[in-house]
Structure formats: structure tokens, C-alpha cells
Computed example of a mutant assay.
Amino acid sequence: MNLYQSLGYLVMGSRLRRLSESFLSEINRAYQNEGIDFDASWFPVFYLLSKNDALSIKELSEQTEVSHPAASQLITNLKNKNLVTSATCADDGRRQLITLTDKGRDLLQQIMPVWDAILLAMDELITDNPTSDNLLPAVDAMEKVFKQNSLAEKIGSKLSVELKPAANE
């Protein structure tokens, strides 16, 4: 058992970050191996724009559950690469609608087969190791738990009640 395994929930965030970084690194390497200049961090925007003609930064932020500034920064990065563009919404001049450029649509056509291959490869890996099939349901459950409960408050209550010495000790 390694250090991370032995520390359990104390390092859950670190383990999930390491797993995520490893997964994204492999995905990026798959794109590179295919000669496709695409970063896995762009996936949510490309996926959503593949299903919608245009979305506002607010809609992208809400659907990807990231902050508005984080979504805006990603869109700025994609604009600088000429993959997306923005235009003022005809109905509401305050809203900027994000769309794929021609270059972005061409890239989308290149990456969609990779998405299919990712799903097939992951299905194969899960089939070869059935215990791994529990990962996504477990992550879903933890996300739900964290949305319904404040972990920080729960930790604070444990500190104030259960772990402090009694007054007469």
C-alpha cells in the first residue's frame, strides 16, 4: 500500500487530481498521436458547441459548472487560436454569443472520432477490470454529497464537539 492509499480521505483530493492529470495527459497524447492540435481542457466548450449553434459565456459557465471568469478565460484562449468567435446577441446587447469558427468546426470534425475512440477504449479497460466500473457512480455520489452538505462545516462541528477535551478533564 502506498502513502496515498494508506491516508484514505485525507488525500482524496490529491488522488483525484493525480488521476485527472494522468487521464488528461493520456487524452492529450492521443490527440497528439493523431496529429490533432487539441487540448483536452477545451473539450467542454467544443462538446457544448457541437450540440448548440451558439452559447453565451454564462451558459457555458453554468453547463460546465465552472466560474464565469474561468469560462471567459477559456473562451479568450480559444478566440486567440481562432477556434471560436463571439457576436453580440440580437435580443440582448449585453450577451456575447460564442460560436465555432470555420477552423473550429474543422477541428471538431477531426476530434469527434477521437471522442468515440475514447469511449470504446474506456469501455474495454472497464471490461478488463470490472471494479473500475464503480468509479463514475462513486464520483456522482460524492458530487451529490458535496452539493448537499458543507464538508468544511461538518469538519468544524467535529472539531468543536468531538475532538476538544471536556472542561473538567
Rank of each mutant, 00 (worst) to 15 (best):
P69C: 06
A40Q: 09
G104Y: 07
L24D: 03
L163K: 06
F46Q: 00
K103Y: 07
A152C: 06
S41L: 08
D116V: 11
F23Q: 08
E65F: 05
K103T: 13
S50C: 09
I155Q: 03
V84Y: 02
D39F: 07
K103I: 11
L16Y: 08
V145N: 06
S86P: 00
F43Q: 10
L19T: 08
G8E: 04
Q110K: 14
L7G: 02
A141R: 15
L24R: 15
G156L: 13
L108C: 01
E62I: 11
D39L: 08
Y31W: 11
I36V: 15
S157E: 15
T101N: 07
D140V: 07
L7V: 11
P69S: 11
A167E: 12
A40R: 08
L48R: 11
N149D: 05
A54I: 06
D140T: 11
D133Q: 12
M1A: 09
L3Q: 14
A121C: 09
A40V: 09
E21A: 08
V114D: 00
D53V: 05
R15M: 13
D92L: 03
T127C: 03
L107F: 05
G93L: 13
D91H: 11
V45Y: 00
S22N: 12
L74K: 14
G104H: 09
N82E: 15
L83C: 07
S14T: 12
N77C: 08
L3E: 13
I98N: 02
S56D: 10
N28A: 04
F146W: 08
L100T: 05
S157F: 05
L60E: 03
A40W: 03
E143H: 05
S157N: 10
T64C: 06
L83E: 01
